[in-house]
Amino acid sequence: MSTAKKEYKRITVKSLIEMKQEGEKISMLTAYDYSMAKIVDAAGVDVILVGDSASNTMAGHETTLPITLDQMIYHASSVIRAVQRALVVVDLPFGSYQSDPKEALRSAIRIMKESGAHAVKLEGGLEIKDSVKRILNAGIPVMGHLGLTPQSIYKFGTYTVRAREEEEAEKLIEDALM
């Protein structure tokens, strides 16, 4: 294994796979606007997440649930305009993918077309498998999010570490392998 980190002009899904195979560390931070994205990208961060946590941090909501697809596209567009190197991943907000795989695909396409994002992120495992397949089949890279899932705040009642019980831990492992 090489100790020198390879320099990439633009981080892509392919380069992330190469980095993982080479055992390189992959950095990821969240940004919601042009100014922060410019700073994060210039610092050499590999992946920038435009998170639905903009609902909390930028709009002052108690949870991530109120943010809309249009608002995510707005934030993602601002970030994309600032970035020269990092791969930009955008959260699909609550309600934009859970109802059915066709809705998930429509939401992912809107984010990609209207913001210029490089990938989308969804929370969940087996329950969103069909949506993930449909999005991937359309050529859109997908990042999964397991464990602490803020969009499930009312299901679990709190933002807390998940999978402490064996049954939940086994489901988390199954979802990750899926």
Results as ranks from 00 to 15, higher is better:
Ala4Met: 12
Glu7Pro: 08
Glu7Arg: 13
Ile11Leu: 13
Thr12Ala: 02
Leu16Gln: 00
Lys20Arg: 12
Gln21Asp: 08
Gly23Ser: 13
Lys25Cys: 01
Lys25Arg: 02
Met28Lys: 12
Leu29Lys: 09
Ala31Glu: 02
Met36Ala: 14
Ala37Val: 13
Ala37Trp: 04
Asp41Ile: 10
Ala42Cys: 10
Ala42Asp: 15
Ala43Thr: 02
Ile48Ala: 06
Gly51His: 00
Ser53Val: 03
Asn56Pro: 03
Thr57Pro: 00
Met58Pro: 03
Glu62Thr: 07
Thr68Pro: 11
Asp70Gln: 10
Met72Asp: 09
Met72Glu: 07
Met72Gly: 06
Tyr74Lys: 09
Ala76Met: 01
Ala76Tyr: 01
Ser78His: 08
Ile80Leu: 08
Ala82Arg: 10
Ala86Met: 07
Leu87Val: 03
Val88Glu: 00
Val90Asp: 01
Pro93Val: 01
Phe94Thr: 00
Ser96Ala: 10
Ser99Gln: 09
Asp100Thr: 06
Lys102Ser: 15
Glu103Arg: 09
Ala104Val: 04
Ala104Ser: 06
Ile111Asn: 06
Lys113Asn: 15
Ala117Pro: 00
Ala119Ile: 04
Lys121Trp: 10
Gly124Phe: 04
Ile128Tyr: 03
Lys129Arg: 15
Asp130Met: 11
Ile135Ser: 14
Ile140Pro: 03
Thr149Cys: 11
Pro150Ile: 04
Gln151Cys: 07
Ile153Met: 08
Ile153Cys: 04
Phe156Gln: 11
Gly157Ala: 06
Thr158Gln: 10
Thr158Ala: 15
Glu166Asp: 12
Leu172Thr: 04
Glu174Met: 11
Ala176Arg: 09
Leu177Phe: 14
